[in-house]
Design a protein around this nucleic acid. Structure first.
Lengths: 176, 176
DNA sequence: TAGAACGTTTAGTAATTACTAAACGAAATA
DNA sequence: TATTTCGTTTAGTAATTACTAAACGTTCTA
């Protein structure tokens, strides 16, 4: 027996909401993206509110952060005051801008904190038991190295044109 | 002028808390890990509560999820009823178990949801405008491909012995 | 067997986050 | 200039999440 399109869209939207929430983004963000992603044409704010059940306010703010992350694009029609939004369909582009976005965040400040701890320890300006200081240097250094590796990997991904299956297999092959 | 060790530890711990929160884990989890990570010896539950300011209950539950993720290890001393915890220091090991952990989660269920949507669309059992169905198939398929790529990459990382800086540079070189 | 020393669970609270409803401002239209 | 049509902001509420305090069960010790 046949499934209705509307039902499928709803299921899909629900799945994307979950995924969004899982990655620490508001559920509504996933919902909005899903609706835009399944629309062949750009949608205006009101149409989004209608299809998601969220309020104008919520859609307004969340669609803005989606745009900042590069997951949706804002456009406008001549002689039409409305803003229109459409989903980015190239995820390799999206992932790059998301990662970039994250680089200037709280996260980066925290990373700097770790680096500063390390620098202070190494500069010899720390008072206390010498053996303990040596131990701390080792540990913090190891963590710092790890962060650096992640950072390199992130930058690598940012620079990639496409993160296709072929490339992934190449990576595996090289490293094995 | 000299910085006190205790001050440095506190700053470091604060940084790790932020990082933890940023990745969607409870702040306290980062705090606990930091305390363990900076300790040369395994710590008992009470010592952790003392150094973090959290309560026994909170430490008990959070240390358990840390253990499940492979970020800390539980041990015990002979003739001592206490549990002792120490931090995993090989982050490449940790990251693998975190990723594994995540694979059997809500997230995976959501992914399956997307795949099902695609299968229903492709099976021809969907009622509705044919052109629209075709459009939906394209879109959902593209997303599915993306997820598959991510999945491959994740599995690749899981299989890696070490994700050291050298390897990352190799990846970059190969893909450029 | 009573008591102490553990870790766990539970029930409730505090803090955070996601959202709503409504006021608002700016731009277009009458 | 008054009115409509848009998007944004704000102030408050609902829902979720992180945590506390205390009861609890178990195992060891006296």
């Amino acid at each position: 027996m046949a499934t209705k399109i509307s039902q499928l869209k709803q299921d899909f939207t629900e799945s994307l909401s979950q995924i969004s929430r899982f990655w620490g983004f508001p559920k509504g963000m996933g919902t909005i993206f899903a609706v835009l992603y399944l629309s062949p044409t750009p949608l205006a704010l009101d149409e989004i509110t209608a299809q998601t059940g969220l309020t104008k306010g919520a859609v307004s703010t969340e669609v803005r952060t989606l745009a900042r992350m590069g997951l949706v694009h804002r456009s406008s029609k001549l002689g039409d005051r409305k803003d229109y939004y459409e989903a980015e369909t190239d995820f390799y582009t999206s992932i790059r801008s998301i990662l970039k976005e994250r680089q200037n965040s709280e996260f980066d400040r925290a990373l700097r904190g770790v680096r500063e701890t390390l620098e202070k320890l190494e500069s010899g300006s720390t008072s206390g038991d010498e053996a303990e200081i040596q131990f701390l240097i080792e540990r913090v250094q190891a963590l710092q190295d790890f962060f650096d590796a992640i950072d390199s990997l992130t930058n690598a991904v940012i620079k990639l044109e496409r993160l296709g299956l072929g490339n992934v297999k190449t990576i595996l092959g090289v490293l094995k």
